[in-house]
Amino acid sequence: MNLNQIIKARLISQAQIHGPIGIFDSGYGGLTIFREIVKQLPQYDYIYLGDNARVPYGIRTYETVYRYTLECVKHLFNMGCRLVILACNTASAKALRTIQQRDLPLLDPYRRVLGVIRPTTEIIGNLSRTGHVGILATTGTVNSQSYVIEINKLFPQVKVFQEACPMWVPLVENNEHESVGADYFIQKHLHQLLAQSSEIDTIALACTHYPLLSKKISAFLPEHIKVLTQGEIVTHSLLKYLEHHPDLEERCSKQGQTAFYTTESTEDFDKKATIFLGHTVNSRHLEL
């Protein structure tokens, strides 16, 4: 057996190992994706990894976000994950494509890494009657233009209007998202978004923290405007992906178990995670 045959045999052997689905985020917001996925697909095992020690990703360069994201993906692979979901819009915008195209073929062609931007952009154009859609996101995601680029690829006739909402993440993480004080910042950015076009009829919450603000957002919008949260969208996309890739689906372990890891204080993570999940968790520390 020559070297190529040996390598191929090892890869095939690795591909047959079962493992959990990994869900990665730079912080806490990905827990809204995690919550919905586990709710709809409870039979699988999951590992959630939050790189809380190096948050926020949105202010960092493409190269830094890519390097941090790849490092965390490798850790999830080492924990046995066959499939990793980047439940972070910044990581999806700045790192996903390079990891998929350059790194996976070298690391393990039988594993997969998916993001949250593509599932959202695949449906948003079909939901808008006016062809005017809004994106509410972090400054980093807005500056990346990822949603504009991806929507224009799939729906070139759709006009995309973006609004960065830098205060919304701190409001959520400090458990102030239901306070009266949050109303000012929510109304401010909704007004600024709708001022760009009076024809916007569909808005995507393109940050995984924002679903915790969705009730207030909807309350301050005209009734005809649809508000899309990514948890249900990504979960539906994942279900379809697993159906279309039965070999990968078979390699996802199914004991209904979950584990949480953070690169920061487990005490802080466990406290803030309850805001997103509605129940307590016991995380473990991961040293990078």
Rank of each mutant, 00 (worst) to 15 (best):
E36S: 01
I12A: 14
S128K: 02
L248F: 07
M167V: 14
H209Y: 12
L190P: 10
A91S: 13
F269S: 07
L205M: 09
H209W: 07
I123M: 09
R97L: 11
A53Y: 01
Y66T: 01
E223Q: 09
Y48T: 00
T98L: 12
W168G: 02
E122Q: 13
Q101I: 08
L86N: 09
F24Y: 04
D51S: 02
S218R: 14
E176L: 13
D45Y: 03
N2T: 09
I7F: 14
P170H: 09
S179H: 05
Y44H: 01
N152T: 12
G22A: 04
L31H: 03
L107F: 06
R112S: 11
T202P: 12
N2V: 09
Q187N: 13
E264N: 13
I149A: 15
Y48K: 00
G19Q: 06
L96E: 04
S128P: 11
Y48E: 00
N78T: 06
Y210E: 05
R129D: 14
D108G: 12
S283R: 00
Y210Q: 00
T98D: 12
T139H: 11
V234R: 03
E287L: 15
T98W: 13
T262I: 11
V227T: 06
G29S: 01
K188P: 10
G131S: 07
H244A: 13
A259N: 12
H209V: 00
R111I: 05
G30P: 03
E36C: 05
L171E: 02
Q14H: 11
H177L: 06
T139R: 07
